[in-house]
Design a binder for these strands. Sequence first.
DNA 1: TTGTAGGCGTTATCAC
DNA 2: GTGATAACGCCTACAA
Lengths: 332, 332
Amino acid sequence: VPTIYDVARRAQVSAATVSRVLNGSNSVDPALAHRVNAAVAELGYRRNEMARNLRRRQSSLWAMIISDVTNPFFTSMVRGVEDVASSAGYSVVLCNSDEHAEKESSYIAAAMAEQMAGVLISPSSNRIDGVSLLMEAKCPVVVIDRELQGFHGDTVLVDNEEGAHKATEHLVAQGYERIACITGPRWLSTALGRLRGYQHALAADKRPLDDALVRHSDFRERGGYDAMASLLDGGALPDAVFVTNNLMTVGALECLADRGLAVPRDIGIVGFDDIPWAHLVRPTLTTVVQPTYEIGMTGAQLLLRRIEDVNTEPRRILLSTELRCRDSSTRP
Amino acid sequence: VPTIYDVARRAQVSAATVSRVLNGSNSVDPALAHRVNAAVAELGYRRNEMARNLRRRQSSLWAMIISDVTNPFFTSMVRGVEDVASSAGYSVVLCNSDEHAEKESSYIAAAMAEQMAGVLISPSSNRIDGVSLLMEAKCPVVVIDRELQGFHGDTVLVDNEEGAHKATEHLVAQGYERIACITGPRWLSTALGRLRGYQHALAADKRPLDDALVRHSDFRERGGYDAMASLLDGGALPDAVFVTNNLMTVGALECLADRGLAVPRDIGIVGFDDIPWAHLVRPTLTTVVQPTYEIGMTGAQLLLRRIEDVNTEPRRILLSTELRCRDSSTRP
DNA sequence: TTGTAGGCGTTATCAC
DNA sequence: GTGATAACGCCTACAA
């Protein structure tokens, strides 16, 4: 494996010059640069990133820590991140925390040990410790999708409250009377924001808020199923339900199917986060669609900006959602 | 940021001893080891992986090069890989080649430059160049899911032919007469294997093979749609279709819906690769299910084995599929 | 068992 | 503009 010295010898220049050419310095004689490039080609030289990273005290990798690789919501964010990263010369390492705080902090530790150029994280816990560590170490971080209490840094969020408001308003407009809500864990900003939007929409229609129509679950398919079952078994039978996450929506639908309830006739349903093939599911699913690619892209751009200047003013970006009406919420 | 020397000073030992403790050498006095660990804890020392990698000429990262991050088939393989990797102390870098040979080779180049410990690849092209480069550089590689012509190394595959055979046999048993097949690119082993299985199943039932019932497409949703349309518009209207990939199955279903054809009454359909929520789609989808997690796990184990001994005998593992019968292929 | 010392391949700081 | 040289932080013969 040829090193920079082999190239230097062959091109009859010093290693320093080779390095300069390789890094695109403009203060180098074109003739020399040409010789260097020729030598690089002839030897098939590839620079050793490890050595480079060590010397520069920074790798060219970004860590993207997400809580579920198999949730299409996250993977389509990845696309947006990747596109920005690769056009800036970075590669993205996908880390799957599986909604597990321990795994998350071990990935954060790894990112620091590998001196990654930056970290994009969608927190699995509301503990700020891990992210604080990164901030203290001056490692550029961007928090995406979920708000982190007490974090003062770059953040990309979706306007959950507004999205939930639109969804609920839509159910109201369709004439549903007893609209329930299945939301996520109490400590998750997304779960709370979406619940708030639901409540405000009901209040705006001068309806009373009934806690018997609200369930907190865990953003998983099973959780959605159980919450739906609990709503049906509770005294206050709903005639519509707003589910604040894609996997839980799937679970809720399964429960309804098992109970033989027809959607949207017996019960109307609106989900949050699109699911792929939502249009193939019968009835087709009404969902609040998030701009996943854009979320990723925006986060990546913030990260790029922070890498350039660690001390730049933190920015907090709020993207909007779009209600995509399909059959599951359309009163016959 | 403390270095190994800071730890050494604090623990009153040499840097070499610290290194030995950190790497779990057993030839070190327990008392010293204890002092070292204490010092590590007090200083909050984390070793610099870059330096370590440079010295050892190998990083602790695996690259997993897949052709589509948003295809659930690949992401659930990732799970299997990750579990094995992390329990062996490696982290997995997910690289998305997007079925693009150029992106693929740039990731291969990156893996070599970063001296990654190993590479798992599901090739986006049948060109062997990239993989050969890795082999020459003695970089451990495992090829998964797709066969690579002329590659003599570790491979994990699924028995595509058998799976396709079962699927087609099932359609035959259901009494369908004119069974079509929508398969992938001619250069993709998976596409060909599945086509072969389809053909053999028909032959086994003494049916003639009719090229007018076969379409080669591109394993994407759009491609499935177009191929289905082309079949319907062709002279030989099929009454069932075997689609050899999940995304194309979705496209084919859309086309059928657009044409107002009822599944399974007018046309029966069986897909390859499960899709999440296949049970929610109406009609529920019959698919040939691949053991995705196991594919990933097996690939990772082969990689681990090869990392331990680069020259061990290559292994080729064939996993089986399972036909999951649901409504889309069940004759009323 | 422990310590000393050299080097992994690059980039950055100097002089020139 | 170019070249020598000193790190970057760690591991590992080798010597003690």
